[in-house]
């Protein structure tokens, strides 16, 4: 808790509510940043395959299997389709 929560104190009133320990700043921290970036990249790739691939752009050329398989989810999640 010690060194991590130090920077949290710079943001105005940080006295934790009674009984609750202060939340540490986790990011930035070199290894944490790497994990965050890779997580975000993978998540965005999944987002792309469900929402976009084989519609406006396609990584598998003309194949439509991914598109057709998640088709209903794509419409329902708000992505343009067809």
């Amino acid at each position: 808790m010690s060194s991590l929560s130090a920077s949290a104190a710079t943001h105005g009133a940080t006295t934790p509510e009674a009984g609750a320990p202060a939340i540490p700043v986790v990011v930035p921290h070199a290894r944490a940043v790497l994990l965050l970036v890779s997580t975000a990249v993978i998540a965005l790739a999944v987002y792309y395959f469900i929402g976009v691939d084989q519609g406006a752009v396609s990584v598998f050329g003309n194949d439509m299997h991914v598109h057709e398989f998640v088709h209903d989810a794509r419409h329902f999640l708000g992505f343009p389709c067809h």
């Binding site: 943001h11 006295t15 700043v25 990011v27 975000a40 998540a43 929402g51 989810a73």
Partner: peptide, 27 residues
Amino acid sequence: VGMVFFGMAMGALFAVAYLLCLGRTGR
């Protein structure tokens, strides 16, 4: 499959945003 994977992708991005907020949101 679409909904669950979408949920997991959003859950992952949610966690990333949550981590960025940690310690920066006062009380």
